[in-house]
């Protein structure tokens, strides 16, 4: 029993670690606040589930989850070419809400608010990942792969170019960086991994509905990124571990379950406020936004 509980937490940590790493690529490295990240997560989940339940193999559903999300990432990069800072953030938020609205209303495809129950566990190379332990192995492999790929990309010239865009787009462009293309790639790669996370989430929980992909989901992932430190992959993983574990003790002090959910959110939100005021660079990050004064005039 306790083993199952711990494995459950570990699996959640893995799924959120993928999400937070994918978000830090956009928000931490490139400096674009994405408030619609849960939409990529959702698109991945629905794409994978709909394909697998239509009879396609899991590996195809998993790859399609990333691929379809990446296509939407390219779409969402269009506003980023024209908008900066908080206006881009609001545009991404509107994007996320439009996607959620479509999930709720396109009932022929998604069953709307009823959700999709009975999602099968994944099957790869003849192995069915139906036990907690095997599922954990599957998710940790994806986490490691995500880390290795993103680490390779972000430590190389791609990562440096993204940081240059974050610091000053005009100068990056004057040095020959194709800013538009780079932003599009950043959005696509970020969405790709969020889509993979969506697939893993859906086939683990075995039920999805639009309420799993709200703004507060994005805010939780954002908090992981800010807590770990913007622009740090290790920090993003640490943020996921801490924030999944942090509210767990609330379960054991005998509160009614409805209150646990609210207290959890209160802790998250309060922590986020204290964090950005007191330690904006997070645990492992570089303090890059601390010194930048928004040009208001």
């Amino acid at each position: 029993m306790i083993e199952a509980y711990l494995l459950h937490l570990l699996i959640l940590i893995c799924i959120y670690a993928i999400l937070s790493m994918s978000l830090t690529l956009l928000t931490g490295y490139t400096g674009m606040l994405n408030l619609g990240h849960a939409a990529f997560f959702a698109i991945g989940a629905y794409a994978s589930v709909l394909l697998v339940m239509a009879g396609f193999p899991f590996w195809l559903g998993f790859l399609a989850a990333g691929g379809v999300a990446a296509l939407f990432g390219v779409l969402l990069s269009i506003p980023s070419l024209r908008l900066r800072g908080d206006f881009l953030a609001i545009a991404t938020l509107a994007f996320g809400e439009i996607i959620r609205s479509i999930m709720l209303n396109w009932t022929e495809l998604t069953r709307g608010p009823l959700g999709i129950p009975g999602i099968p566990k994944p099957e790869l190379f003849g192995i069915v990942f139906d036990s907690m332990l095997t599922y954990f192995v599957l998710t940790i492999v994806v986490v490691l792969a995500t880390y290795v790929v993103l680490k390779y990309l972000l430590d190389g010239k791609f990562g440096i170019a993204l940081k240059a865009i974050r610091e000053n787009e005009l100068i990056a462009e004057s040095l020959g960086k194709d800013v538009k293309m780079l932003k599009m790639q950043a959005f696509a790669i970020s969405a790709l991994f969020a889509g993979f996370a969506g697939s893993l989430f859906a086939h683990y929980i075995t039920f999805i509905d639009p309420s799993s992909f709200t703004l507060s989901e994005t805010v939780l992932v954002l908090l992981m990124v800010v807590l770990g430190g913007l622009g740090s992959l290790v920090g993003s993983i640490a943020g996921a571990i801490i924030l999944i574990l942090l509210p767990e003790p609330l379960r054991f002090i005998g509160l009614p379950s409805s209150m646990v959910g609210q207290l959890r959110q209160i802790i998250y939100a309060g922590l986020l406020i204290v964090l950005i005021i007191k330690r904006p660079k997070g645990l492992f990050g570089e303090q890059w936004f601390g010194g930048i004064v928004s040009d208001s005039s």
């Binding site: 440096i160 940081k163 570089e286």
Partner: peptide, 14 residues
């Protein structure tokens, strides 16, 4: 220059 990047990074980006 890119203030929050190292000197080497400032050259690599170019």
């Amino acid at each position: 220059i890119f203030n929050n990047m190292t000197l080497l990074e400032n050259l690599f980006v170019a």
